[in-house]
Design a protein around this nucleic acid. Structure first.
Lengths: 334, 334
DNA sequence: TTGAAAGCGCTACCAC
DNA sequence: GTGGTAGCGCTTTCAA
């Protein structure tokens, strides 16, 4: 079932069918409707592969995400997807969760596939940038790069966000803090951890960091268990993200420790769950809805059809104070 | 940068390059390595569109999910994805969340694209089945169909699961129950609701159902608010899924009602969160890991390369009792 | 306003 | 073992 069948049935040439298919002007109305009817009757659907082969383009956006199952990235994905679908594009998602080395192959695959745009969350394989810059495709980088040419960088101030959290806890009287880091060493989460250490040291509080093997709830539980087993008794526990923080709260409770009564807990990202967990989480809001919009904007041509221009976009952290840090300090003694 | 460039550089014909690319036997080792080197030096990547155009196949699995953002489906997606990637396939995800009418177009798109297999979660557009049966592609249906030919049906006994929950609550002494239904009318969730009504009526308890507009946490909150505002005061609240149930617990708490102290709550699906929420949720376990494995098994050729055979797979519910239903009834008075 | 024909990059068949 | 070549289904000049 191909375009030629349609052409035959409608008694026209292939070129004319193609014109109708692509909404090109200059086809007599009567011919057009004849073709349309033939398409209908034959239940004809153009073959997208043939199309992209012929044009060297495709209406697909390639996304590489380190962990699409982290609710934070899932939300970003959702935002991007809904925007993209609206504009007639599809998303192809590649998860690099298994292996950092996956990223380059994924990108090359996308390039070979002539995707309309590529977004990387959040990665930094050196050398990949050159490939990307050469490729004549709009690119969005998250938490990396400086923008320019065909590439747009969206950057969030993870250090400042972390600082807000540590300072809040300090102001609440906490002098013994622990940090649960991410299981994998990605630039943005590592920045958070480093800033925690910097801040905690500067303020002169006792501190400690742990890193779980797993991500998410299970990781938070595991790290908290290890921490407690080590004998360190923080009055405040900072999770590298909300997902992990909820797991930590749970494990604290399993061990008979209440939040924020015995231990205050904070997260990061402000995923929807952080408002619905119990206690609700004090966290740092990252405007993920905006991110979705910005990504699509940076990848797709604008209303006038002009290709997007690479630039640098900075996003600011916002402190959200909720139940998990209580109103008063858990321990005021120094 | 095409295969011909490689052929030229290696001083061979296009066919030989193709053979090497596809691992076909009967290429002299020396020629092979010469070609491999040329590929390397040219950084050549085969164009997947050209490939599928020539073969009429592609290593892509098409998934249609009503709501991939429901953590339950997200987990299933993850299970499928990891299996598929391992075997060298990619996933293309289409969400029908906006509109049920989207499903047919999505499927047709997949068909036009010559995907290697299609899975539908969970849908039932009549007439779509005919298209699917005719198409010579392995198909997996979730909670629909009877299996056979090229289509495999995976069915879960939602009614029995619901019954287990209602009977547990009844045994615990509850005589006034409310049910929060799903925002969209999908067959499986509707089955759950209907069975709740059947059971509750049979047991002679007072009951009520509400349906939120939103899904997830916000939906659970919204529905609970409406319910309470209506004046109905259940001692037990059943959420159509865990995601909604967590939102319900939160709203109860906002209104000064504790779980399970004042109101017992149950979910459905046994998503990971249900174990980490507070209180942890009594729920029905659906073996989503198995589902992922089964889907891939039903879509991809087996070890011997034989195409999969359609069949009917039944999955059994398992009751998971946790904190949200307490140990004792909230209200024992009849 | 329309059609013929030349590719797009790859595979697979048929010769050598 | 290897190469020539005819498509796969579509778009896009170029002519008519």
């Amino acid at each position: 079932m191909s375009l030629r069948n349609v052409a035959a049935k409608a008694g026209v040439g292939a070129a004319t069918v193609s014109r109708v298919l692509n909404g090109h002007p200059g086809v007599k109305a009567s011919t057009r409707s004849r073709i349309l009817r033939a398409i209908e009757e034959l239940k004809y659907r153009p073959n997208p592969h043939a199309r992209s082969l012929a044009t060297g383009k495709s209406r697909v956006l390639g996304l590489v995400m380190a962990n699409p199952y982290n609710p934070f990235f899932a939300d970003i994905y959702q935002a991007i997807e809904s925007q993209a679908v609206q504009r007639g594009y599809e998303i192809e998602l590649a998860s690099s969760h298994t292996d950092l080395g996956q990223i380059l192959p994924c990108v090359q695959q996308f390039l070979a596939q002539k995707v309309a745009g590529i977004a990387l969350f959040p990665e930094n394989d050196p050398g990949i940038l050159d490939d990307l810059r050469e490729a004549n495709v709009p690119v969005v980088l998250f938490d990396t790069g400086e923008g320019g040419d065909n590439i747009t960088s969206i950057r969030f101030d993870h250090r400042r966000g972390t600082r807000m959290l540590v300072e809040l806890l300090f102001a609440l009287g906490h002098r013994r803090m622990a940090y649960i880091a991410a299981p994998r060493l990605l630039t943005p989460t590592e920045e958070r951890r480093l800033e925690f250490i910097t801040c905690a040291s500067r303020l002169g509080v006792e501190w400690r960091t742990v890193a779980p093997v797993a991500d998410g709830f299970a990781g938070g539980r595991e790290a908290t268990r290890d921490l407690l087993r080590s004998g360190f008794r923080p009055t405040a526990l900072l999770g590298v993200n909300d997902w992990i923080a909820v797991g930590a709260v749970r494990e604290l409770r399993n061990q008979g420790l209440s939040t924020p009564g015995d231990v205050s807990v904070t997260g990061f990202d402000n995923i929807t769950l952080s408002e619905f967990s119990c206690p609700s989480l004090t966290t740092i809001h990252i405007p993920r809805g905006d991110i979705g919009r910005l990504v699509v904007e940076a990848l797709l041509p604008d209303a006038s059809g002009a290709p997007p221009k690479g630039r640098l976009i900075s996003l600011d952290p916002e402190l959200i104070v909720r139940e998990s840090t209580g109103a008063a300090p858990a321990v005021t003694a120094r």
